[in-house]
């Protein structure tokens, strides 16, 4: 168990619902769920196998105090942010954000599944876009391909070769970005300072350690 996880488990003792309400974004909505199942039936990743536990089940498990099972589940990471559930829920739960919020919290506690590809994408995307203020699509793609090691990266790169060549031909992928000539914001320093402050304030509000 990571330190952060131990500390939180101790702080909330057996009240997992309260923990989610206070720590996960929009977590205070979980108790409003009436278990109708509309969200599960609306979720695209449910039609194409993906979810271990659809949103309805996750919310039930939270109320049943199944802390470990919920926080280590791969389910939340399957959310495509399509907002189907969100617009259909009769109780108006902001399900998309709750799923993201639980996933984010699990990640902060070190409980997210190891090598979870969507978590990796999230990390890579955010770091890529906040480094200069703008996404560098070439570097983003490189770091995504090479996450499983050099050979796997080459293989993935070859599989995607046609896709990339098509984009280069159509002038939609700028190879110069790999060399650092890509798009950037002028006030990168200001952006860094602003984000550092935001992380500090968020940790303070949630009574957590500052991460990264």
């Amino acid at each position: 168990m990571s330190n952060a996880n131990q500390a939180m488990a101790a702080r909330y003792k057996n009240n997992f619902l309260k923990e989610i309400e206070e720590q996960a974004e929009m977590g205070e909505w979980v108790k409003m769920c009436m278990q109708c199942g509309v969200c599960s039936g609306s979720c695209p990743t449910h039609f194409h196998p993906g979810w271990e536990h659809p949103p309805q089940e996750i919310f039930m498990m939270i109320r049943a105090g199944k802390r470990e099972e919920v926080l280590t589940s791969p389910s939340m990471w399957m959310c495509t942010s399509c907002y189907n559930c969100y617009v259909r829920c009769p109780r108006k739960l902001p399900i998309t954000h709750i799923m993201h919020g639980i996933a984010e919290y699990a990640y902060r506690l070190g409980l997210a599944p190891k090598m979870q590809p969507t978590l990796h994408l999230s990390q890579t995307f955010w770091r890529n876009c906040t480094k200069t203020g703008r996404v560098n699509e070439v570097r983003l793609t490189q770091s995504l391909y090479f996450k499983d090691g050099f050979m796997a990266g080459i293989k993935k790169g070859l599989e995607m070769k046609d896709v990339a060549l098509g984009l280069i031909k159509a002038k939609r992928l700028n190879i110069l970005e790999a060399l650092g000539f890509g798009h950037k914001c002028k006030d990168q320093q200001g952006i860094q300072k602003m984000l550092a402050k935001a992380r500090e304030l968020e940790a303070k509000r949630k009574n957590r350690q500052v991460t990264a």
């Binding site: 974004e25 902060r108 969507t118 999230s122 995307f125 203020g133 984000l195 968020e202």
Partner: peptide
């Protein structure tokens, strides 16, 4: 002038709440 990327929906896990909003707020 000097607009920045918003991070899109997918950065939720790494960004957390406030940093994401701050990027848009800028």
């Amino acid at each position: 002038p000097d607009w920045n990327c918003c991070g899109a929906s997918i950065s939720y896990a790494e960004a957390g709440e406030l940093p994401r909003h701050v990027m848009n707020a800028r």
